[in-house]
Each structure stands twice: as C-alpha cells, then as structure tokens.
Design a protein around this nucleic acid. Structure first.
Length: 758
DNA sequence: CACGTCACTGTTTTT
DNA sequence: CAGTGACGTG
C-alpha cells in the first residue's frame, strides 16, 4: 500500500486526514465526503504503522460500521481491515463488558434488554410499588431513567440532582424508587439495557483503573463518527479511553444534530475544543451531492439558528433549480400532486422510481401516500414502522433462546413461562415473583429451589413448572456444543411454539409463520457467513448477541426500483436525486411540542436542513391546508420554515392546485402492486433483516425469479416433497401455497424458500 | 384462561 | 382513525 490514495482528496479533506498530532474536530457539512475522510484517515494511520487493533472507530449504526469497514478493506486489504476495532458504541462496549463482566457483578452471558423489555419491567415495578399508573406512565418513566443514565446519573446521584427536584415539582417523587428497583432487577436478571451498556462501561473504567489503562493503551487512536449525536456518557467514555494520549478525531456536523430526544447533546460537538484543549478544527465545506441552489437554500435556512459552528458550505455542481413549494387543499390532494410530480419528473429526467424519496415528520403521514401510490400503481417502499424484532412471534422465540442462554433473564422468563399455554397462570406467576422479590433472587432461582424460596403451590402446578424447568435446563446444557440451527429448531418445536403458530390458517398466523421462517433463514445466513469468515463463534449465544444489537435499518434492500417513503430522521445519511418534503405545516413541522422551546425549534430547523440536503437535484416542499389527524379534520397554516428560505431560491408553484383526483395513467397497469390486505400492508414491504446471501441461496434453489406454477412438484430442503397449489405476489413478495406430503399445506415466501423443482 | 368490549391516547427513535 | 391496554364475562 502506498499513499497514492491521498490524491482522491480535496485540500481540506487531505489536511483532516493527515493531521495526527493530537485531538481534532472535523466539521463535515452535508455531502462533503465525511465517510471518505474517516476511512482514508484510518488507512493513513495504518500506513503510519499503527496496528489495526489499536484503532478504535465508533459509529452509531451497524450499517455505517459495515460500510466503512468495506471501504477500508478496499484501500488496505481485508487482512488489516478485519482487525480494526470498528463498530457501534453499543456493540464495542458490549464486547468489553462481556470480557470483564465479573468485575461488575455480572456474568459474561448477560442479556441485553431492548426498549420493550425495559418498559415492561418498569411497568411491573410501577405495579409492585402500587403507584398510580396515570401519574407514572411507564413510557415516560422509562424516558426519564434513560435520560438519567445518558447523563451517568446513578440512582444515588439522582436523589441529589435537579432532576429529582423537577420530579417533585411534577408530583412524581417516586421515579427514583422505580429507578433503584429497576437497576436491582436488571442485576438479578443478569441483564443490561442499552443505556447500561454505556453506564457500565463508564463504571468499569472508573472503578477499575487497571482495565481502563489496558484499553487506553490498546486504543492508540480513537475516531468517532456522527459526533453531534453523542450523549454525555459516550463523550465521557471516549475521554476515559483517550485520557493519556488525547489521540481523538471526531467527525460530525452540528447542523445535523437531530437526536436530542434520545439524549444526544449538541454541546459535545460545539464545545469539543474546550474539552480538548488545543484541538485542531477542520472544516469540510464543499458539498459534492447537491446543486448550488439546493445548498444555498439549505444555508439560508440554517442561518436562522443561533447556536452553530460557522461554516460556508458550497457546491460546484450545476446551479440547478430552485426549491419548489406547492400548497394543496387536503392531505389527499397533497399525495395526488406528489405522485403526479414524481411521474412527470421520472419521465423528463428519464430516471428510476428509486430516485425519489418522500420525507415526512411523523410515520403516520405515510398513509395518504401509500393509498395514492397504490392507486397510481407506483412501486414504493416504506421504511420504519414496527421492526422485525419487535414482532410478537419473533420476540417470543428469541425469549426462548435468551432464557436458555441466561436462565436468570426475568423478561424472557415471564414472556414464555405460559406461552404456549401450559397452565401456569397469572396467580402462579405472581407467587414466583413475590418469592423472588422477597429473597432478592431471580425467578429461575425460585423455581429451581422452590422450598428454599418458600414457593407455595399445588402439586399439579408444581409439576407443570417442574417440566418447564427441565425442558429449559436441557437446552441450556446442550447450548455450548449444539449446532445453533438444530437447537433453535428443537426449541421451536418442543416448546410447542410451532404447533401454536400452525394452529390456524388465518392471515395473521400465516404472517407469523413467515416471520419465523425468516428468522430461521437469518440464523442460517448468520452461521454461514461466520463460517465463511472463518469464525467459530456460531453458537446460538453468538447469534443472540448479534441480534440484540441489530435493527431493521441495518439491512437495506437497495436495488429495488421503488420510491422510498420515510421519516426525515431515518433519511439521515441517505441521498436521492429528487426529494419531496411533505406536510410543511405548523404543528406538524415544526411539531407543536418542539416549537415551544428555542432549543426544540432549532432542532426542528436542523431536521428540515437534513431533509433539504438529502436532495441532489430536485427538492419539492408541500403543505396541505386541511388534513385528517386522529380522526378529525384539522386546519394548519404553512410552516414558518418556508419563510426561513431565501425567497429568491424558492419557486412557488401554483399550477398543481386542484388537480383531478381521478388521474388515469395509461402505463399504470405495468406496475400493478399486490393487492395487499390492509392489516399486513407494510409488513411485506419491510426490509428483511437477513436477506440470505445470494450465493448460498442460489445453490439449493433460487429465490428471485421463481418459475413455479400450480401443479409443479418441488423438493424443499427441510419440508420434503410438495405440490404447488397456488403462487401469488411478485419478486420479493412472491409466495406459494404448497401441499407437502408429510406436513400438509404450508405457505412459503419464495425469497427464502430453499427448494428444487422436480 | 381465552376472548370480547370499552376507553384512551396519540413525535421523532441510530442501540 | 387505529392500535393498545385494562377489565369483565363465558
């Protein structure tokens, strides 16, 4: 490797890459090649002789980490890239915590509680403390606890903080009690929530200097992506790790800080140079993404914010078109206009559907567009909504895996102790919990030694519990050596989950079946790809660890020619030739609650800035006068943000008002979308987390362009011989109804089915 | 213990 | 409107 790659950089990028004398802050305007700077900097560090494992690069999403790793591999080769310490804050810290769990009184197989788990635990605690669930709403309490943790405030600190004073003023003095008890329960369950992964890492380093030292010596250089979105805890941990050498490079854009509601603190980036004295500042100001007018319009908007690092983002691309603003009468008309514009633009630009994105403030706004696009036969894909891992059936099967891997996991225990029903009802469950609380042990310990923990139950109930316990125990014993897929499959069947899910042919159940299939397909892919990488970590436990820190956004099925519909938040980091920012109305964008405070309003404005800067060539804003919200018709004035844009860069389009709703399009039938049942409409369109690697799939069967028709005989890898009864849907969504000789009728999502034609 | 009915309550959400 | 959760009945 030589340093030729540096020629790909512009001057400011190169300066940022080459500086390795101390801490630095890289302010990367939208579209200015931020990822390029990060990856090249890492390559440069390697070239300087740094060992890959001594470079720590922290990102916010798995996707960003993966992308960066791939790009670095292209520069320096996979051999070096493989050993880079690169990943999300949470996954890197989880690894550190597993290695040192005993120091904190956890064991290394601890469970990671997701948001659902922690909320559910908080809910039970509120009940146990006999607090009024109207004053103490579990979601609000959870947010409050999360906020405390993001500020590294332990229950003990909480009592002396101003937060506690606020609680008292709000007549919620018991949040601290819930917090305390919540932490105890997590500990008893050998579980950490997402925030604990940060808090506990910080604690580990604070209380065990030898460990902190070890890591700070290992990580000779620390890089942080999206620094504007870090919270206090993350900032502190970075500081713990880099204390001695101060070799930190953080990259971000204060103008794109939009996650304060998750604890992100914009001051981290604004005050970075105060925290790291003498830190060097680099600004990447050339935007390579958008036309000049789009960049200028975005600049004119963000100028209205007080708190920011001054910068001059510019573009040398075409001048381009002004932003366009269209007002419509209603939300339905808004959707119709947008669809019409998309068609026109696609034609005039000779583009693809995937060149277009519709961005909105809230998920619920997707509805009118969905309806209209289905009517107009425009292919689309909605991002967001209920994620794969939040679906009940997936959470259930994962809960089994979790309990097997960590018997003390209370949330997993409670989820499945009586699912599928095995005659262990609420009363019994209550008694187990009481005993556990009384003795300060986990639920599992109570059922393991019922007499010791004074569990008083009838002989019949005891027997049921006993058999549940033995069942799980056996799996736990098998865990270390078992083939993950085999074990998972055993659990699925022996637990009775399989029978339950196949007990009906209702669409609801079919969708569950498909989702579980998909999970198993994912498990398979996981094992295969780990094997390909030469890793032995392919047990069910390894799968669990991977899965607990994964989200839907991480897999994207780009390549599909579809219009993207998503919230502005989830559009961050993406770009599209044409962007429609819809619902530009007061009370929606800016949302009424955020607009109440100056800080909140500035964040909304940054959100709008993010939205505009997603556009490469065309950016259209729309406002509707009337829209349905919560079942009634609301009137809203146009968003104040419209006025924030330099009028010379905004074209007010009046031509489209009052378009005819019954727009017949001659080409429409070509793209006819599936008539989807409404309950599952977006479900089939969701990203499949683990899209099987085409390689492995192609060998056994095929997925994309299936050639099945009714009457065909197939042999399925697991289900055996079957006859095709019916095929429906297209491409990604194609599924077949197949009658298997041994198993009866099943529905298969062909995307995942492994079979050969006979 | 399963299922039906009623009241309630609505941002954004990288892990 | 629609999804959720609490509660009561078979």
């Amino acid at each position: 490797m030589n340093s030729d790659f540096l020629n790909d950089l512009n001057e400011s990028q190169r300066e940022a890459v080459l500086y390795t004398d101390g801490p630095s802050l890289v302010i990367a305007g939208a579209g200015s090649g931020k990822t390029r700077v990060l990856t090249y900097k890492i390559a440069w560090l390697l070239l300087q002789g740094l060992k890959p494992w001594s470079i720590l690069a922290l990102t916010f999403t798995n996707k960003a980490a993966k992308e960066m790793k791939e790009r670095i591999a292209n520069l320096v080769g996979i051999e070096q890239a493989r050993y880079l310490q690169m990943g999300t804050f949470h996954s890197i810290f989880a690894r550190i915590l597993r290695a040192n769990a005993n120091r904190l009184g956890f064991s290394s197989n601890f469970t990671i509680y997701d948001q659902g788990d922690s909320r559910s635990l908080i809910k039970t605690i509120i009940k146990e403390l006999e607090l009024d669930d109207k004053t103490y709403k579990h979601t609000a309490v959870a947010d409050r606890i999360s906020l405390a943790k993001n500020h590294l405030m332990l229950p003990a600190d909480y009592a002396t903080s101003t937060v506690y004073q606020t609680d008292i003023e709000r007549k919620q003095p018991h949040i601290i009690d819930i917090y305390k008890r919540y932490q105890e329960r997590c500990h008893q369950s050998n579980a950490m929530d997402f925030d604990d992964l940060l808090v506990n890492t910080w604690l580990l380093f604070r209380n065990h200097e030898d460990i902190r030292k070890k890591y700070s010596e290992q990580f000779a250089f620390v890089l942080v992506d999206e620094y504007q979105d870090t919270n206090y805890a993350q900032q502190q941990i970075v500081s713990q790790i880099s204390e001695e050498r101060q070799m930190v490079c953080v990259v971000g854009d204060d103008a794109q800080s939009i996650y304060s509601f998750r604890g992100a603190n914009i001051d981290n980036i604004l005050d970075f140079r105060k925290q790291y004295n003498g830190a060097k500042l680099f600004k990447l100001e050339q935007n390579y993404r958008s036309t000049q007018k789009i960049v200028a319009a975005a600049n004119s908007l963000i100028r209205h914010n007080e708190r920011q690092i001054p910068k001059n983002v510019f573009s040398e691309k075409d001048e381009g078109d002004k932003l366009r603003w269209i007002q419509s009468y209603s939300d339905r008309e808004e959707a119709a206009i947008v669809c019409k514009k998309i068609r026109q633009l696609k034609l005039s630009e000779q583009g693809h559907w995937s060149d277009f994105a519709i961005l909105y403030r809230t998920n619920s706004q997707s509805r009118s567009f969905e309806e209209q696009m289905r009517k107009d036969a425009i292919p689309y894909r909605i991002y967001g909504g209920l994620s794969f891992y939040q679906r009940k059936e997936i959470k259930d099967i994962i809960a089994y895996f979790r309990l097997v891997a960590n018997n003390d996991d209370e949330e997993a225990f409670r989820r499945i102790i009586n699912y599928p029903t095995r005659g262990i009802g609420a009363t019994t469950e209550g008694k187990i919990i009481d005993s556990a609380n009384k003795f300060g042990v986990s639920l599992w310990q109570v059922i393991s030694q019922p007499q010791m923990f004074q569990l008083n139950l009838s002989g019949a109930t005891m027997k049921k519990i006993e058999s549940f316990r033995t069942m799980v125990e056996e799996w736990t014993k098998a865990l270390p050596d078992a083939d993950a897929y085999e074990l998972a499959s055993t659990i699925y069947h022996v637990s009775g989950m399989h029978a339950d899910i196949y007990s009906s042919r209702e669409p609801e159940y079919q969708s569950k079946q498909e989702n579980i299939e998909e999970m198993f397909a994912g498990l398979n892919t996981f094992i295969e790809s780990r094997r390909e990488e030469g890793s032995d970590n392919i047990s069910l436990t390894d799968f669990l660890q991977e899965v607990s820190l994964m989200t839907d956004i991480d897999s994207d099925e780009a390549g599909d020619d579809k219009v993207s519909l998503m919230t502005i938040h989830s559009a961050k980091g993406l770009e599209f030739p044409s962007v429609f920012i819809v619902g530009m109305e007061e009370n929606i964008f800016p949302s009424s609650q955020c607009a109440a405070s100056a800080r909140g309003l500035e964040e909304e404005r940054r959100l709008f800035y993010v939205a505009i800067t997603r556009a490469e060539r065309h950016c259209t804003l729309t406002s509707a006068q009337y829209r349905y919200r919560y079942g009634n018709l609301d009137y809203n004035r146009p968003s104040r943000f419209i006025n924030d844009i330099d009028p010379s860069l905004l074209y007010i389009d009046k031509s489209s008002g009052g378009i005819q709703m019954q727009n017949a399009h001659p080409v429409a039938h070509q793209f006819k979308a599936d008539p989807m049942p409404k309950a599952t409409a977006s479900r089939y369109d969701l990203p499949s987390r683990f899209k099987p690697v085409s390689k492995s799939n192609q060998t056994t069967g095929l997925a994309k362009n299936h050639d099945l028709k009714p009457g065909d005989i197939i042999e399925h890898q697991r289900f055996g011989i079957g006859k095709v009864i019916q095929v429906e849907g297209y491409g990604e969504n194609a599924k077949a109804t197949i009658e298997f000789t041994n198993l009866g009728i099943k529905q298969l999502l062909l995307k995942f089915a492994k079979y050969v034609k006979r």
